[in-house]
Design a protein around this nucleic acid. Structure first.
Lengths: 207, 207
DNA sequence: CGGTTTATAATCCGGCTGGTCGGTTTTTTA
DNA sequence: TAAAAAACCGACCAGCCGGATTATAAACCG
């Protein structure tokens, strides 16, 4: 019987957002419960009341964050009309968003991958995450197949490849900005994807 | 006047290899100096004698490791004859090597990227690392241009894109093996790269 | 209004970590 | 062989962290 029925959800979000902020700023390895508590405006006891352990909180935080990121990406393809626009548009917004947000996202994602490399639970989370992106791309490709734009093929494979290419370019662009400009990233992405998809284009629209 | 003139180098290598092994096994966030000392067959005091701090040791360890990896990769293109074979061959060995080695490499590299995302020193190291791969690919492309296989173009850009694609596919393949088979990785890589390079092929060999 | 539950804060503790440092062994030098 | 230098050890310390425990306050209910 909480005083406000939604309090639990409110507090949990409050804590998760604080955790995300702190992780993104300091890196998960340097984050303490006290840091998160301070950021959330609670005490360590308050945190303990809502999350069983640090590990539990971290997993929830990563999950919460990728839901947030997903929304940003989906925003980017809302205005896209055709399958190709959707495929290329998914993710593009990251290149043009304010530096701070993007930097933040990368920091968290690399921490996430690092954890996934060492821990099965995080690997499962990562897999879920990846599959969300892949699914969106896959739907765009299937739509293209239905429309006669692409020849029928295993859209899961192509969707995964496109997604992986995207991820790879992002990584370089963020971690080594001195050698990888926004222009390089956008151009590489566009060229690589359109080239890759060419063999899957229906003849009538080839070229 | 050390007992054996090379002792310092020997010990440092001994410690660095121990550090690499421990980092790759447990993840850098969980590594203690005591762990590394034990693995190296020394005491904590012994480590302190050769490395000023944990951070110092870690940076050296990452540097040492990527030198090791580089050798493995270079091995993979020793038998390659043409530029295209070199481009596609660089890295392919990872897909076929014993699982343990590869798993190890990935774990370390993700830790490395995670550190790079948060710390300028590591970002610089990462940049150096990337540029080594890019340079090798760039040379293969330049060779292709000289041979008339490719049309003249900015080989740095294409080399970086290829390298990024490669990295992206690797990442997915390793972190989500349930949805990304070796076959997928090899096929994706080959298709994506050959498609991407097609516009840069000289007309006479265009196909 | 009093008691009970819930929410939050404050405090504490056991364990671990990186780094230090005095001392011991080993090697070199003279 | 004696002294000096280098290599190495391991105990120790101060600080920090996560989690648990205890204390306080707020909300609800009968």
């Amino acid at each position: 019987m909480p005083p406000i029925p939604e309090l639990e959800a409110i507090r949990r979000n409050q804590i998760l957002n604080a955790a995300i902020k702190i992780i993104g700023t300091s890196g998960y390895a340097n984050v303490t419960m006290a840091d998160i508590a301070r950021e959330a405006g609670l005490s360590k006891g308050g945190l303990a009341h809502y999350f069983a352990s640090k590990d539990d909180l971290f997993k929830e935080a990563f999950k919460a964050y990728y839901d947030q990121i997903l929304q940003i990406f989906l925003e980017g393809i809302k205005t896209a009309v055709g399958p190709m626009e959707k495929i290329l548009g998914l993710g593009m917004p990251l290149f043009i968003r304010e530096t701070e947000d993007v930097s933040f996202a990368h920091k968290i994602v690399y921490d996430f991958m690092s954890l996934a490399a060492h821990n099965q639970d995080y690997r499962t989370l990562f897999s879920t995450w990846i599959n969300t992106w892949v699914e969106i791309k896959k739907q765009a490709i299937d739509e293209g197949i239905t429309l006669g734009l692409f020849i029928p093929h295993d859209s899961d494979t192509t969707a995964r490849t496109i997604s992986a290419i995207f991820h790879g370019i992002y990584m370089r662009w963020y971690l080594d900005p001195d050698h990888h400009t926004v222009k390089w990233a956008e151009q590489s992405f566009t060229e690589a994807i359109t080239s890759y998809l060419k063999p899957y284009l229906a003849k009538k629209v080839y070229n």
